[in-house]
């Protein structure tokens, strides 16, 4: 009994926190299901965007012992590239070649993914590889790379904060529930997020590369001694992690636009997610993303009309502190991973 409870503690803590957040949100909405539903959808939307950054960060950390502080910059780059491809007058102007904005948006997302992946290969092969045995240098170097990426973005796109102008069908569609209008695009992003959560879990559980990644998280040296080129796996995982973060930026851009702040905002929140979920735990990252996303949305709603306007931005850290007090290794982390 005690063992079962011990094994299920992370799930019980997660359920308790989510139930608490939802209950508070429902009370804060004065029992209005429409209002409550908007907060929940907004929370899931933010949680999925966080997952797109945090999943790569977590798997890269688990497998490679590298905490890359450049990961938020990949999210930012994805947002800029998607914005640029979608809108006229950018660096890559596709408005004449693909006049339909509905078709241009998937192309913009693919461009964001490709740029993220390309920059990921350059960072892993060119800069990180010589520093695998020097963790402090990795932190400093990836932080430096993040700053350089922000400066390059400023040089190309200026410091202007770009708001999404070129509307497309999915973004313009709404559905009504409990007397409230819900954005179909938000629902679409939440759906994509869940598909990715399940898809990555299936890759980790059911494919050879997934088995290699899970084994590598435990003992990289032994994986190599079995005849597997771990360095090649590092490159693949790092590149995919960067591509997913850039995809996150691209898919967030119709709501958040493109700005330099995205790099730091999403990095800090994603680091909070990875730590509270348990360093290197994929399940922890998925659960942590949803919890932090919901907590931010609930805090945003609660802060309306109060003096606590800072509440939403400090919420991820408050949740992190709460969970680390309950479980010092993070929600799904082992003592070893902490």
């Amino acid at each position: 009994m005690a063992t079962t409870l011990g094994k299920n503690t992370p799930i019980l803590v997660m359920i308790a926190i989510i139930t608490g957040l939802l209950t508070f949100s429902f009370i804060n909405s004065n029992g209005d299901f429409g209002d409550f539903g908007i907060t929940v959808l907004s929370g899931l939307f933010q949680g999925m965007l966080l997952f797109l950054v945090a999943s790569g960060l977590s798997i890269i950390f688990g497998l490679m012992d590298v905490l890359t502080l450049a990961h938020g910059a990949y999210f930012m780059i994805g947002a800029y590239v998607a914005y640029d491809v979608q809108h006229p007058g950018g660096v890559i102007d596709l408005t004449a070649a693909i006049p339909d904005p509905n078709l241009r948006f998937p192309v913009a997302l693919i461009a964001a993914i490709l740029v993220g992946a390309g920059l990921g290969v350059i960072l892993e092969r060119g800069l990180l590889r010589p520093l695998y045995s020097r963790p402090i240098f990795q932190l400093v170097m990836t932080f430096g790379v993040s700053l350089v990426m922000v400066e390059i973005v400023k040089a190309i796109w200026d410091t202007t904060i770009y708001s999404w102008q070129d509307r497309f069908g999915l973004q313009e569609s709404f559905f009504e529930l409990f007397g409230q209008q819900f954005s179909v695009y938000r629902l679409f992003v939440v759906g994509i997020g869940f598909v990715l959560i399940i898809g990555i879990a299936l890759i980790l559980r059911r494919t050879r590369i997934g088995i290699i990644i899970r084994a590598g998280v435990e003992d990289r040296q032994m994986v190599e001694a079995l005849g597997i080129n771990v360095q090649l796996v590092f490159t693949v995982v790092f590149t995919l992690g960067c591509a997913v973060a850039a995809f996150g930026g691209g898919i967030a851009a119709p709501f958040l636009g493109a700005s330099n702040n995205l790099a730091t905002d999403f990095l800090l929140q994603a680091v909070a997610v990875v730590v509270l979920g348990g360093m290197g735990s994929y399940e922890g990252t998925a659960a942590g993303s949803i919890m932090v996303g919901l907590a931010i949305a609930v805090a945003q709603k609660a802060a309306i009309g109060t003096a606590f306007t800072v509440l939403p931005s400090i919420t991820p850290m408050l949740l992190l502190i709460l969970i680390l007090l309950l479980r010092p290794s993070g929600l799904f982390g082992s003592a070893h991973s902490s």
């Binding site: 899970r214 084994a215 435990e218 597997i228």
Partner: peptide
Amino acid sequence: RPYHIAQLGIGYVPEHRAIFKTLTVREN
């Protein structure tokens, strides 16, 4: 590199086994 040496046809059973504990026997 170790992976290249293993691929030549050398199998290594390390001290303390170094099996992957979170993987099933089949996955190992």
